[in-house]
């Protein structure tokens, strides 16, 4: 904030008052220098723990590295193999895209529906909000993944209920055709954090717009489509971007439910799980690094695509 520093430099030395650390710093090294000093704790962490390893992994992606020996430069070999001769890469991209394209829209729709319901000035709103948020806190944990395994296995709760209606279900999590969908359901069930954000967004919509619509005889459904949804598009946009990135990065549920194999028959071989297998199962750190950079590009592509299309459907009217 430029005003602040102007004000401070305008104050000059004040007798009998010790200048604060910030004032002394600004005087000594200028506002930009002072900013860096205060940024340092975060910046150091970013450089040492994020940027450094990220660049190193970029280097590793051009090598053959098994963790025990030294990395050996192989040029574009890893990338060539991924592009031309890796059926598991193709399989994992297919699984991951299916997961993202199904779970993100369904989760957002579910979150929005619950948020609209909760926004009607219910009694005990905070309690309901907390209850609905709970799965999101637990969702990525190992315990829930294990619970899911129990629910959808051959003699699990789901088949117990289906059995009441005379339906004899398979073991859903270990049948190739259904395994991925149990993970989609798990993702949808964790609708808590987009719901909270939707709820905050709904609160921002001025009530008089609805009153005016009411006067004009618009039905509730029409109000939702013509008022709520358009005014909520910035929030929907935010949630969609964040949830898409999250979905691409999903790992724990597939890892636990398939026992780390991505099975049955690669049905739950998420991209991150394949990456993990290559890195820590078969010790191909170079290859795994190349896979990680490709994932970064894929996510960047989807995010850029969202931002480019945003101007056609996201309305910022203030």
């Amino acid at each position: 904030m430029p005003q602040t520093s102007d004000v401070m430099s305008g104050l000059g030395p004040v007798p009998n008052v010790r200048p604060t650390l910030r004032q002394r710093l600004v005087r000594g090294i200028g506002p930009a220098g002072a900013a860096y000093v205060f940024l340092f704790p975060w910046l150091a962490g970013f450089l040492v723990l994020t940027l450094g390893p990220a660049l190193y992994s970029l280097y590793l992606s051009f090598t053959d590295y098994d963790l025990i020996g030294a990395p050996r430069w192989t040029g574009l070999d890893n990338y060539t193999r991924i592009a031309t001769n890796d059926p598991k890469f193709a399989a994992s991209v297919r699984v991951t895209l299916t997961f993202v394209l199904l779970s993100v829209p369904l989760k957002l729709a579910f979150a929005l529906g619950i948020a609209v319901m909760l926004n009607r000035g219910l009694k005990g709103l905070t309690l309901y909000r907390a209850i609905f948020y709970l799965p999101s806190l637990l969702g990525t944990s190992v315990a829930i993944a294990i619970l899911w395994r129990q629910l959808f296995s051959g003699d699990g709760l789901v088949n117990g209920i289906l059995g009441q209606f005379g339906i004899d279900g398979p073991s859903w999590i270990s049948t190739p055709d259904t395994a991925l969908y149990t993970l989609v359901i798990l993702a949808i069930w964790q609708f808590g954090s987009p719901m909270i954000i939707f709820l905050a967004g709904l609160r921002q919509i001025p009530g008089d717009i609805y009153e005016a619509a009411e006067m004009d005889g618009a039905s509730k459904v029409r109000q939702f489509w013509r008022i709520t949804l358009p005014l909520l598009t910035p929030v929907i946009f935010f949630n969609a971007v964040v949830q898409t990135i999250e979905a691409f990065k999903a790992f724990t549920p597939a890892f636990i439910i398939s026992g780390g194999t991505g099975g049955p028959i690669d049905a739950t071989l998420f991209y991150t799980l394949y990456l993990y297998q290559e890195a820590f199962g078969y010790f191909r750190m170079g290859y795994a690094s190349a896979l990680a950079w490709i994932l970064l590009v894929i996510i960047a592509f989807f995010t850029a695509f969202s931002f480019l299309t945003a101007r056609y459907w996201v309305h910022y009217d203030d």
Binding site: P176, T261, G263, Y282
Partner: peptide, 19 residues
């Protein structure tokens, strides 16, 4: 060999599930 073991599991499942 570890990767071949994982492959055997996957192929055996493909046969078992009738694919």
């Amino acid at each position: 060999a570890g990767e071949v073991e994982a492959l055997l599991i996957r192929v055996s499942e493909q046969v078992a599930f009738g694919q």
